[in-house]
Design a protein around this nucleic acid. Structure first.
Lengths: 116, 116
DNA sequence: GCAATCGTCAACCAGATGGTTGAATAAGCT
DNA sequence: AGCTTATTCAACCATCTGGTTGACGATTGC
């Protein structure tokens, strides 16, 4: 029914979810650990993770009683191709990306519990 | 308050709005002409255009009684940089983009009034 | 067995979103 | 001036979203 890009972009439209993706860039994480830096409830984060999983941006594997979340960057490829069609964007610029992550850490989290 | 990427991705999450952007790739258009291929009301399209303008994805200039809509692909650059940070995506692939547009034309519009 | 931990489910709430219709504003045409 | 075209505004509606809280099933460890 709905186009895959709908769910991809909708998932990316939330700062909490983008932050989660950034966190998962470093390593796989359990749900509780993903939720730790946020001031919202665990249930809310669990829902965010479900949205990300539905969009294919992460995968979740339950081992024992902990559910591990893993980044699945392939799901971004279609969206990336779509966007790049609109302009001759510069090739991968990891420095710009790092700057984004830094500013996300500074701005997106609630002013409590911001990790150092 | 809200991160610029929030509005960018949210604007891109709607198939009607993505279609509008694709249409504006070819040329600037008046609001009425943008609305023509869709089965939704003109007012709805006008709102969509406002969302796109708020996200900076298009600009609107009123000349006489018609308001011209112009694609502003620069607004996609920040989002593109963000996404590319998550993987080594292939460089600009215009063929893949054309395929996307073709499938959008086939799938996204309501089954009425699909332009040939 | 029993308590603690991990995570989801269910019900609920406030606010945003996408759509409609009809009236209103603005600019051109004759 | 008066009709027509272009676009938005206002009110309304149904649905989605992101959040909460409390109960619940499942797993682990003592």
């Amino acid at each position: 029914m709905t186009h895959p890009l709908d769910t991809t972009f909708a998932a990316l439209a939330d700062p909490t979810r983008r932050m989660i993706l950034s966190m998962l860039l470093e390593d796989d994480m359990a749900v509780t650990d993903v939720a730790a830096p946020f001031s919202t409830s665990l249930a809310a984060i669990s829902k965010h993770l479900q949205v990300l999983a539905d969009a294919g941006l992460i995968s979740q594997e339950k081992r024992g009683r902990v559910k591990w979340c893993k980044l699945e960057p392939d799901a971004l490829r279609a969206a990336s191709v779509w966007m790049q069609g609109f302009g001759q964007f510069e090739p991968v610029d990891l420095d710009a990306f790092e700057r984004f992550l830094a500013s996300d850490l500074a701005n997106d989290l609630d002013d409590t519990d911001v990790p150092a």
